[in-house]
């Protein structure tokens, strides 16, 4: 039974649970800056979890991805987002389309779905961290939910990045990480994406005097 789980696996499970918890916290967070901080914290947890996997399995390239995660997701991206929030003078409140308890219930349902989808697969895995695949998928889905229910631009982007976090967790947990060249490519894409979005925010604000993307609902099928 459970007694056979080695300490490293316990730690990985713990970090994965924290990531899931942070995903929920982000879903429930009403303000922008704490949201970004939560995202940074998630990146940090991801980095720690990757480090444990790297240390346990002796996969050298995982140290690289851990460092990449730390620099990109825990420091650089939150910093850029903080700057954006300050420069754009975003209002502190985040509005959601549906209230928070309803969101939470939807989140729980998503987590159940994700766990069910992932269960047969994680049983096939021999990786030490295989159980976290379901959590990774759940984080992806929760971030997805966050993108759907948020009406402001920056929370949507945080949701997008959190989705990337979940995917990264999936990569480390199921397979000990993708090949380095792919990981670098993904990191580059994410970074460029955020920079482009930064430019884009300014365009949106100049055009609408607000970052509420409910202004962006003119194009519809009539």
């Amino acid at each position: 039974m459970s007694a056979a789980i080695p300490l490293s696996a316990q730690l990985i499970n713990l970090f994965a649970s924290v990531i899931l918890l942070l995903a929920f916290a982000m879903l429930a967070q009403r303000r922008v800056l704490p949201l970004i901080n939560l995202f940074a914290l998630q990146g940090l947890t991801l980095c720690l979890s990757t480090l444990v996997v790297a240390f346990t399995t002796g996969q050298a390239h995982l140290y690289g991805s851990a460092a990449l995660t730390l620099v990109l997701k825990a420091i650089l991206l939150p910093w850029i987002l903080h700057r954006l929030v300050r420069k754009l003078q975003v209002k502190a409140d985040v509005e959601g389309l549906i209230n928070i308890p309803a969101t939470m219930i939807a989140g729980i349902v998503l987590v159940m779905i994700a766990f069910n989808v992932a269960l047969p697969i994680s049983q096939l895995s021999s990786a030490i961290s295989r159980g976290t695949l379901g959590i990774a998928l759940a984080s992806v889905m929760l971030a997805f939910l966050m993108m759907i229910i948020r009406t402001k631009a920056i929370p949507q982007v945080v949701g997008f990045l959190a989705m990337e976090n979940g995917l990264f967790l999936a990569a480390t947990s199921a397979t000990y990480g993708m090949p380095m060249v792919v990981e670098l490519g993904i990191a580059l894409d994410v970074l460029v994406g955020v920079i482009i979005l930064g430019v884009f925010f300014f365009q949106i604000r100049d055009q609408f005097d607000s970052l509420d993307i409910r202004h962006l609902e003119k194009l519809k099928e009539r």
């Binding site: 039974m1 459970s2 056979a4 789980i5 499970n13 994965a16 649970s17 899931l20 918890l21 929920f24 939470m104 989140g107 729980i108 987590v111 159940m112 766990f115 992932a118 269960l119 994680s122 159980g131 976290t132 379901g134 959590i135």
Partner: peptide, 16 residues
């Protein structure tokens, strides 16, 4: 939410 998450995490992570 916490309680359900605990249950789910238990199901996913800790059962071999």
């Amino acid at each position: 939410l916490f309680a359900v998450l605990g249950l789910l995490v238990r199901l996913l992570l800790e059962t071999r």
